[in-house]
């Protein structure tokens, strides 16, 4: 309530360097505090208001449009190096409301709230009539594909047994019929070759996450499963932030990377 004219705000342009700087601070905060789904990148600044704050400082209120990248939230790759998920892959947009305090030249994110939505089927169809749409992560085909892909990964693991942490996305392709999935796994205290009851396996205190892509083809004569996983550097037990984490490491079971292509992936 504007008592005595104390509550005043200004509205700089959305593309002002000042506004973009604050949006950048907010985007870093959002990605640093994202532990599931995919990293996001700024697409458009929708609105900005700057409130005077007593006794000093200013509070920026921003509405930001974001787009999903193909880097998982746990992937240590800097978001600047991540690819924006294209419309043909069924892009996902986000709307974020953020409040950032600027005081003595320092920025502090006060609040950040984001909601995300996949692009409409019509928009995807306009760009790519035959591209598969995003399926629900609890879709039966997606669930089966993740289970099969994880089982295939564990069958070839020479170390830990890996548990499913998150099904990140799934697409059911009609022709030729197959299901594509992306999911997150984490190492447990069980040895993959010796596990008899996966239910008793517990995640390691030092979390080691991996991001997997898999396909499952169900045929009359059998099935075909493909999976490849990128294992990330272990995270200390009390890790509350992903900042400062080193890059992905090569799994001991992985083939040696060639010097020309030092891919950090552990691929099975």
């Amino acid at each position: 309530v504007p008592l005595g004219g104390g509550m005043t705000f200004r509205q700089p342009n959305c593309d002002d360097p000042e506004t973009e700087q604050v949006a950048g601070v907010a985007m870093n905060y959002i990605n640093d505090n994202l532990f599931q789904s995919y990293k996001v990148i700024l697409n458009q600044i929708d609105k900005v208001k700057v409130w005077n704050r007593r006794p000093n400082g200013e509070v920026y209120e921003l509405e930001l449009d974001t787009l999903e990248t193909t880097c998982h939230a746990l992937d240590p790759t800097p978001v600047e190096n991540c690819t924006v998920r294209q419309v043909a892959e069924h892009a996902v947009e986000g709307d974020c409301d953020v409040q950032v305090l600027k005081q003595n030249g320092q920025f502090t994110v006060l609040t950040a709230r984001c909601d995300s939505n996949p692009d409409s089927a019509e928009d995807v169809r306009k760009v790519c009539p035959n591209c598969p749409l995003l399926a629900q992560t609890n879709d039966t085909s997606v669930v089966v594909a993740v289970e099969k892909a994880l089982a295939a990964f564990n069958a070839q693991s020479n170390g830990s047994y890996y548990q499913l942490v998150e099904t990140s996305r799934g697409q059911v392709v009609p022709v030729p019929p197959y299901t594509y999935v992306e999911f997150v796994v984490a190492a447990t205290d069980c040895v993959a070759k010796e596990v008899t009851d996966p239910a008793v396996c517990k995640l390691l205190a030092e979390k080691q996450y991996g991001f997997c892509k898999g396909t499952h083809i169900q045929r009359l004569g059998g099935e075909d499963v493909k999976v490849s996983c990128t294992m990330f550097q272990t995270q200390p037990p009390a890790a509350g932030s992903k900042a400062g984490g080193p890059g992905p490491v090569v799994d001991v079971a992985a083939p040696t990377s060639s010097p020309a292509n030092p891919a950090p992936a552990a691929v099975v």
């Binding site: 959305c14 973009e20 458009q44 600044i45 900005v48």
Partner: peptide
């Protein structure tokens, strides 16, 4: 100064402070 009916509008680009530019594509 308000324009009178029939008068030409002010020349120059329309200023749209917000929303800002689209960096990738609109969903």
């Amino acid at each position: 100064k308000p324009a009178k009916p029939g008068m030409a509008g002010a020349a120059g680009p329309l200023v749209r402070p917000c929303p800002g530019r689209i960096r990738h594509f609109k969903v």
